[in-house]
């Protein structure tokens, strides 16, 4: 009798896991089908969306679930990109190994910096990671093997022949980026739903209480920082793949864009990260259309996207202090409660 009961409950725990897996597989399949039906530019943008979504996911993992805000995701992305490029150039291993190298090296740096970051909070951590994002890319000029301002070329080769002649380079990029992102997001989602994720959440909302029930908040913060850096490293390697592994790719603006995407996505829901990535790619597109109406002025094209995203950022924190997603949730729950009260 008792045994039966336990079986039932464990089954219930496994179900969402399988459902999530199925969801991700279907999503990936859908995206790949879509990739065949749109233009090259859209395929390239699709790859960018996937990469941004992954980077945003790495930040949501950190901020939404452990309460730390890093302005330095761009720096970890740079580390991952350089690690991947260097591995590829000097060792020429199978492609997957270069990506693993990106994750491992970025995570390693994340662990080192996270060790210090765990003792910092709020503005201190933000300021320190900001300095990191601004300073780290300048290191590229210091060591000649990093290629200076021109950077390195991270060559993932062309698609294997069995995909057919129609399979262009951009499709290959998209294929790699979307697959890596989906696998990683699935992986993060499962961490967050695990005991670890719940413990992080506890540490975020009430560090003192979490400490009291025996959760080691400090160590978990370092762990969150490490994993987040590793994921960002992968996103960086992917970004290096579609553009260039150079300081000009991993600017402070990139870090800020990631934060913007994460805040707009809600900071607490991972599913929002794809939406965040979409926003980051779509807004410059809109800006270009608008600047077309103003006679293609360079100042407008360069600054309009920043104006829109920054305004959105401010409005979001001003009017939905808990992130749009949670606010919506809250709103729905309140409605439900009101309906219940009425029914009584």
């Amino acid at each position: 009798m008792l045994k039966q009961k336990r079986d039932k409950s464990s089954k219930r725990e496994h179900n969402p896991y399988r459902r999530r897996l199925l969801f991700f597989i279907l999503l990936g399949w859908g995206l790949l089908l879509l990739g065949d039906r749109v233009s090259e530019l859209r395929v390239y943008q699709g790859a960018l969306i996937a990469i941004y979504a992954l980077a945003i996911g790495s930040l949501i993992l950190l901020t939404g679930y452990s309460g730390q805000l890093s302005l330095g995701q761009g720096a970890f992305m740079a580390i991952g990109a350089y690690a991947a490029a260097l591995t590829q150039i000097y060792l020429q291993p199978p492609l997957i190994v270069t990506f693993i190298a990106a994750v491992v090296v970025a995570a390693l740096f994340g662990a080192i910096i996270g060790g210090g970051a765990a003792r910092l909070s709020g503005p201190y951590l933000a300021g320190t990671t900001l300095a990191l994002a601004l300073g780290l890319p300048t290191l590229a000029n210091l060591f000649s093997f990093l290629g200076g301002e021109t950077g390195l070329y991270f060559d993932v080769g062309i698609a294997p022949e069995r995909f057919g002649a129609e399979f262009t380079l951009y499709k290959w990029f998209f294929w790699i980026a979307a697959l890596a992102t989906l696998i990683m997001l699935f992986f993060i989602q499962n961490i967050l739903k695990s005991r670890y994720g719940r413990a992080w959440k506890a540490g975020r909302s009430n560090p003192a209480a979490a400490q009291l029930v025996g959760l080691q908040v400090g160590r978990r913060k370092v762990l969150a920082f490490t994993i987040s850096a590793g994921v960002a490293g992968l996103a960086g390697a992917l970004l290096g793949m579609v553009s260039l592994v150079a300081p000009s790719t991993f600017t402070l603006s990139l870090s800020f864009a990631i934060i913007t995407g994460a805040v707009l996505a809600g900071l607490t829901s991972l599913t929002g990260s794809i939406l965040g990535g979409l926003v980051l790619v779509v807004i410059p597109e809109i800006a270009e259309m608008v600047s077309g109406n103003f006679g293609e002025s360079e100042a407008v094209t360069a600054n309009f996207p920043g104006l829109i995203t920054s305004l959105l950022l401010i409005l979001t924190v001003l009017f939905t202090p808990n992130g749009p997603a949670e606010q919506w949730h809250h709103h729905k729950e309140k409605k439900k409660q009101k309906a219940l009260e009425k029914a009584h």
Binding site: T63, G122, A126, L267, T309, S310, P321, G323
Partner: peptide, 29 residues
């Protein structure tokens, strides 16, 4: 509007970053 939600703790950082973005964009324009 501040509450003790997850974003509230980092809201001032995000808001001032947003302001930085707006200012730069306007100056650039």
């Amino acid at each position: 509007h501040a509450s003790d939600g997850p974003v509230a703790a980092v809201a001032p950082v995000i808001a001032t970053l947003g302001l930085l973005g707006v200012i730069r964009a306007l100056v650039g324009l």
